[in-house]
Design a binder for these strands. Structure first.
Length: 108
DNA sequence: ACTGTGACGGGGC
DNA sequence: CGCCCCGCCACAG
């Protein structure tokens, strides 16, 4: 099985669907894009994606911000300004996790 | 071709 | 909660 080529735009496309006040994980974005097990590549793609993409709405599984230093602070501020709450270092995913619609499924 | 490096994820303790 | 370990995968040297 030849591996489908990884197109940065496709990989981060799902990020545009995350509404204000909600967050998703790198792994979920990867799966929603059709590239399971590519969580790290999603992070890499966001890093290399300049532009107005809402990158701050993507966090690590468990609701923890994975960016270190100032960039991480900025992400937290951006999220809080959108209404996302924190409990310690983490975001209660129970409250703010955005669920991507289930992957396309061929019906009969 | 090989090695080191992550904005990752999951599991074990 | 913190730590460690390991699987994963594209990229830079």
């Amino acid at each position: 099985m030849t591996r489908r080529p990884l197109i940065l735009r496709d990989l981060v496309a799902p990020v545009w669907k995350i509404p204000r006040g909600k967050v998703t994980t790198y792994g979920d974005v990867a799966r929603a894009a059709g590239f399971p097990r590519h969580a790290r590549q999603v992070a890499w793609a966001l890093r290399n994606a300049h532009g107005s993409i809402p990158w701050h709405r993507v966090v690590g599984a468990g609701g923890e911000i994975k960016l270190r230093g100032h960039p991480g602070m900025e992400q937290r501020l951006r999220l809080e300004s959108e209404g996302v709450t924190f409990r310690g270092r983490r975001i209660p995913m129970r409250l703010h996790a955005f669920r991507f619609p289930v992957a396309k499924r061929r019906l009969g």
